[in-house]
Amino acid sequence: MEFSANHPILFVMVGIIIAVVLAQSFYFLFRAMKRAKEIGIAKKTISSTITSAAIFTIAPAVAILLGVIVLSQKLGLAVPWLRLSVIGSLSYETIAAENTLKALGDGVSAITNAPAFISVIWVMTISIAVGLIFVPLLTKKIQGGMIKMGTKDKKWGDIFSNAMFLGMISAFVGYVFCDVSLAFKGDFTGLIPVCVMAASAVAMAVIGLLATKLKIRWLTDYALPISLICGMAFAIPVTGWLS
């Protein structure tokens, strides 16, 4: 068969894998919903979890789609579709592809032959396989320890889980400030992420206040997606002002 990075058979193969991945998500969703009913979690809690997770996902998912479009210029559409639906992120897959293409002397131009194409897929697959291989082996052990801790000392279990989330959030808050020192050299672009973060934080706080003061319960379900969009929208003018 003559090689093409957009050959229909590639879409069929990728489609099959993605169908299995979707099936896994549906399987775990239904299992969790069934269990939720058994242990008496309120129906309203479940439905608000579902709708707000779905709404929240839209903007980040469109960003992932943008990654597919960017990568497709080099690799055809099928492989980026697979890699960004399963595990990969744009930055990681781009690095994997570029490292392989560099060795071929192709620079980062589009792939036109099968050996280069297959090499890139192998590098992407093997390099990011660590989670795929070890998560099935180690999750039960790690998770078991967590549950044990939660039952042994409930207060510490709660503090531990808050500490984990705060640790993660603090790393990203720090990252937002990573280029602020450029302002001393007259380059204010490093302040853009700080302003965006502040805007979405203010949006979140205002929505929280509105929801409690005016007793609009449903508003809290969409507080995160609304604040995310506010922050992203604010990025457009603020980037214009500061760059």
């Binding site: 990203f172 808050v173 992420p193 973060m197 979405s200 979140m204 922050g231 929208a233 990025a235 457009i236």
Partner: peptide, 17 residues
């Protein structure tokens, strides 16, 4: 710029809570 700034927007909202 909006898509470039997803992470700051996300962690601003999550962080404040």
């Amino acid at each position: 710029p909006a898509f470039d700034m997803i992470l700051p927007a996300l962690f601003g909202a999550l962080g404040v809570v």
